[in-house]
């Protein structure tokens, strides 16, 4: 099964290898095989495959990973542009960096 690829050179993922303790949790949670282990540390091997879900960032115990997390959904971007925050659909999760995204209303996605 081929791997889907989206736009090149847009992803905001960053990994600070100096902080990495090599626990490997980021490799476990990534559903796109963006990271790999090299010399006991995590390394980004396929940046363009990243969809900025933020799983690696929120599970990293030493905060070595930073990504402007969000959902790659045009409707969510439009809802945000139109100022809709409502019950019915997704809005864009603001890029607040670290930690868990703020709670939002009900969603229709998926």
């Amino acid at each position: 099964m081929e791997k889907f690829v989206y736009l090149r050179n847009v992803v905001t993922l960053n990994l600070d290898q100096r902080q990495c303790i090599g626990c490997g949790i980021c490799l476990t949670v990534c559903p796109r095989a963006v990271l790999a282990m090299a010399e006991e540390r995590a390394r980004i091997v396929d940046r363009d495959a990243c969809m900025e879900c933020g799983a690696c960032m929120s599970n990293c115990p030493v905060d070595a990973i930073a990504v402007e997390r969000g959902v790659g959904c045009a409707q969510a971007v439009i809802n945000t542009m139109l100022g809709r925050t409502g019950e019915q659909c997704c809005t864009m999760t603001p890029a607040e960096g670290r930690g868990e995204p703020p709670a939002r209303g009900r969603g229709t996605c998926g």
Partner: peptide, 20 residues
């Protein structure tokens, strides 16, 4: 098709914003 980015499983927010 652009709207379908939300149902897909590999698009990033940065990419969606760029194409939008």
């Amino acid at each position: 098709a652009l709207e379908f980015t939300g149902a897909s499983t590999f698009t990033s927010l940065s990419g969606v914003k760029k194409e939008m």
